Simulated scan of single mutants.
Amino acid sequence: MGYVDTAKHDRRARPAIVSRRKCGNLFVIGRQPGRVGYIAIAAGVFLLLACSWWLASGLGLVSPIFLPTPQAVGLRLSKLAADGTLWADLKVSLYRIAIAFLVSSLMSIVIGVLAGCYGFWKASFEPLVDFVRYMPVVAFVPLSILWSGTGDFQKFLIIWLGTFFQQVLMVMDAVKRVPADFIGLGRTLGMADRRILLKIVLPSAFPGIWDALRISLGWAWTWLVLAELVASTSGLGYRITVSQRFFQTDTIIGYILLLGVLGLVTDQAMRAAEKILFRYNRRRP
């Protein structure tokens, strides 16, 4: 029986074991891929969807009236951009969502912080917010038109209704998650309630509040399109409605993709801003 160099055998087997472990890390609870790996996986998913779309439309598996090719959608968007239609629609929609989301966010932060800190304000606002937030925003569209017409204020109102009440609850939750020990330390140091609120509660809660605003921004885009789909004469949602009447599926899909890109850009912008504004927060995304 010959001698077997077990050390040499282990050295040969170890790289394969390590390689398997590295690959398996992606399927372990709590493990996250590196930045390059994350981008590669995400890009791969988008590429897979684009290829599926190209094959389904390019091979004639789906009629162009229902699913035009990516080339047709790209050409249509280029044409709309060249004649200024795309930029006009984009400008109007960005203006509407910026104003409505800013007003909703400021109001929700003030009310949410007060309700999260003080029992009186919690009893005043939380039951009302819980009551209203279960009312479907779509049902308010006819009322909002009766109340304010079909101008920009009606679009502001729909976006506000769809985001404000959800934001208030999330801001309250962010404030409630501030450790009680932090507040107790402030009282031990003899700080007044106002200083505890400004120096302890708000800095501790603002990363969570910012994350809540980032999530609610996605809802705001949805309510913007809803508001522009009904009784509107401008905006991205209006253009989708007009295109549906004339069976311009390429325009509809192009605008839907554009909305997705806008949402992704604004989401990533807020993520980047969070890292700059709240460097003291060590929470991982």
Rank of each mutant, 00 (worst) to 15 (best):
A13F: 14
N25C: 10
I17C: 06
G162P: 12
Q244Y: 03
D83T: 06
A220Y: 03
G37L: 06
I256Y: 03
R20G: 15
I196Q: 14
Q32V: 08
L169E: 02
R96T: 03
G44N: 02
P142K: 13
A98I: 06
I29W: 03
V45H: 08
L61Q: 08
G37N: 00
A269T: 02
R194Q: 11
Y38M: 12
Q268P: 04
G149Y: 14
R271E: 00
K79F: 04
L217E: 05
E126H: 04
F156A: 12
M1V: 07
V138P: 02
L114F: 00
P68M: 09
P207F: 01
R194L: 14
A205L: 05
P142T: 15
F164T: 15
L143T: 08
V178M: 09
L49D: 00
M191F: 06
R195Y: 01
K122N: 12
W223I: 03
F246H: 08
F125H: 00
T241D: 04
P15Q: 14
N25Q: 15
M172K: 11
A115K: 03
S204K: 05
F101E: 13
G74L: 15
I65C: 02
F164N: 15
Y3L: 15
D5E: 06
V132K: 00
Y134Q: 07
K155G: 02
A205V: 10
P70N: 03
A123F: 02
L102E: 01
L202K: 09
L224T: 12
V225N: 08
S57M: 12
I29P: 00
Q167Y: 08
L59N: 04
G149D: 11
R195F: 05
S78P: 00
D211Q: 10
A56Q: 09
L213T: 09
E274M: 01
V113Y: 10
R177M: 13
M172A: 10
K8I: 06
G2P: 13
L262M: 14
T241G: 02
Y3N: 10
R11M: 13
K79A: 15
D211G: 13
R284K: 00
F101P: 09
K79T: 11
A231P: 00
A180T: 08
